[in-house]
């Protein structure tokens, strides 16, 4: 244990995701040794980010205004909606430059263990967005793990009666990988999701 404020800093850092007690200690001592101006800049950004950043009222993505950059962009296709768990998933899909539609960020996935049910996700907002019939395809891009799949199943049941096209991202082999190195689950899924090459 260190004295007062140093231990406070270590404790706070240790609360961050992916930071264990040892890393927290290392970061704390790095900060103590660093130039005061550098540390001040970090502290300012931390305060500012909480003040300035809000969530887009339409899609739930991080934004500096009421609406995020993508929702404001008139060039984006309003008929295709990509449903993701987190804002960072938006960034991931954007990096592909393949998708020109719009997004909806749920804010997580259904997980009873963590106490997250459908009411804790932005599903009501999603239903409202879909109500006017502009969107003709919803792409369910939740994570390919148990909770993500459960969320996708739930949304599929909910959206099916609305008569729009519902798609799920393909899961399978990584591009540029070797078949022999793929694990059995991934390879098994890739087999299930195989497609004919002549159409």
């Amino acid at each position: 244990m260190y004295e007062g404020i140093v231990q406070d800093l270590i404790d706070e850092l240790g609360r961050l995701p992916g930071v264990g007690p040892k890393s927290a200690q290392r970061i704390a001592f790095h900060l103590l040794a660093a130039d005061p101006a550098d540390v001040k800049r970090l502290a300012d950004v931390l305060v500012e980010v909480k003040q300035k950043v809000r969530f887009c009222q339409t899609c739930g993505n991080v934004a500096e205004d009421d609406q995020c950059r993508i929702c404001r962009d008139p060039g984006r296709d309003p008929t295709v909606l990509c449903v993701v768990e987190e804002s960072k998933d938006v960034v991931a899909v954007e990096r592909t430059r393949e998708f020109r539609g719009r997004y909806h960020v749920l804010g997580g996935a259904i997980s009873p263990i963590e106490g997250i049910g459908p009411d804790d996700l932005r599903i009501r907002e999603l239903m409202q967005r879909l109500a006017d019939g502009t969107v003709t395809e919803a792409i369910l891009a939740t994570d390919p793990n148990l909770e993500g799949e459960a969320t996708a199943t739930y949304l599929t049941r909910l959206l099916k009666p609305m008569g729009l096209r519902i798609t799920r991202l393909a899961s399978g082999l990584p591009v540029g990988g070797d078949l022999e190195y793929a694990d059995e689950v991934t390879l098994g899924r890739a087999f299930e999701g195989r497609r004919a090459v002549d159409d």
Partner: peptide, 8 residues
Amino acid sequence: GGLRTLEV
């Protein structure tokens, strides 16, 4: 509320 997700 929970019942709706139970089916999933």
